[in-house]
């Protein structure tokens, strides 16, 4: 039972991180109709910047720099490429982000090499215990920060003028533009927010129990894709639910690995994709995604 509870708690923390990344996917998709495959390498960029700068600048400044750099990189991608392709087919847009992803990822992996860069979190690698249930402090703080960020995001999405503008442009871009909403600005801001969220996720993803920044962080960030799809690509609430669902199932599958041995070692790493495919079989637009209707 304690094992179950501790796996559940760890799953929630992992899920909170996934939710941050998935939220980035969803915001970008809502604002510019692009499924951004760049998110994974942006996350790695954030992690790399934080790790590299934390020695000269100290942890807090490095974290801030990492978030700013990642957000700027996302902005650059949007301004230089996505903005020029307005109205292009969804598939071309997705493919172009894959191209950007390859370039960025190749450069980052080349720089990281085979090292594991360490990020000196001030809270260190200690773990926190409630009775017998343990969780690393890093992950506990991740839950808190992600919770606060997501709450702020939802509030902003609902009440701020940016949130209203974004919802309007997602609803009907043409009408929104006629009402004086600048679609380009909405889309640019969405990319900036998504980039920043990815960097925050990276900050916690490279802390305990993960050893540090290595190219494998990228494949972890890819698992936020199922989270976003699972909840429905155009549903912000869905991203949250999807993230938690994926995080918990992954943690449980990894924890009960010995009982699941007939499925092969390391099944925890693929379970997000299995869950995604099963959900998509039942609900093709995800759990909370709007069904696409066609009228003739």
């Amino acid at each position: 039972m304690t094992q179950f509870l501790s796996l559940l708690l760890n799953g929630v923390s992992l899920g909170a991180i996934y939710a941050l990344i998935a939220l980035g996917f969803v915001i970008i998709f809502k604002a510019s109709e692009v499924v951004s495959f760049t998110q994974g390498s942006l996350l790695l960029l954030g992690a790399y910047t934080i790790a590299r700068l934390s020695h000269p600048l100290g942890f807090w400044l490095a974290a801030l720099a990492g978030i700013v750099v990642t957000a700027l990189a996302a902005l650059l991608v949007e301004r230089l490429i996505i903005n020029r392709l307005r109205g292009a087919p969804v598939i071309s847009l997705a493919i172009v982000t894959i191209g950007v992803d390859i370039i960025l990822l190749t450069e980052l992996i080349r720089r990281i090499g085979s090292d594991i860069l360490n990020v000196p979190h001030p809270w260190g690698g200690r773990s926190f215990r409630i009775g017998d249930v343990g969780i690393s402090q890093n992950r506990l703080i991740a839950i808190l920060v992600a919770g606060v960020l997501i709450a702020i995001f939802f509030a902003a999405f609902k009440y701020s003028s940016w949130g209203v503008a974004m919802r309007a442009s997602a609803e009907d871009g043409e009408t929104a533009a006629l009402m004086g909403i600048r679609l380009g600005r909405v889309s640019a801001l969405a990319w900036v927010v998504a980039g920043a969220l990815a960097a925050v996720a990276a900050l916690f993803l490279v802390g305990a129990p993960t050893p540090g920044v290595s190219p494998s962080v990228y494949s972890v960030s890819l698992r936020a894709f199922p989270a976003a799809i699972l909840g429905g690509l155009d549903s912000t609430g869905g991203a949250l639910v999807g993230g938690l669902l994926i995080g918990i199932t992954e943690s449980l599958a990894a924890g009960y690995q010995d009982q699941l041995l007939f499925l092969g070692r390391g099944f925890g790493d693929v379970v997000p994709y299995v869950v995604m495919i099963i959900v998509l079989l039942v609900r093709p637009s995800g759990l909370f995604g709007t069904k696409e209707l066609t009228r003739v």
């Binding site: 499924v35 994709y273 495919i277 998509l280 995800g286 696409e292």
Partner: peptide
């Protein structure tokens, strides 16, 4: 059956899953 029900971009991401599941099967 999955492919036929999913549209455009959902299919792209769902098929992403197939690669990772395939890798797992190959390894196991």
């Amino acid at each position: 059956p999955i492919a036929a029900r999913l549209r455009g971009i959902y299919l792209g991401v769902a098929s992403l899953g197939l690669v990772f599941i395939g890798q797992h099967v190959l390894n196991s």
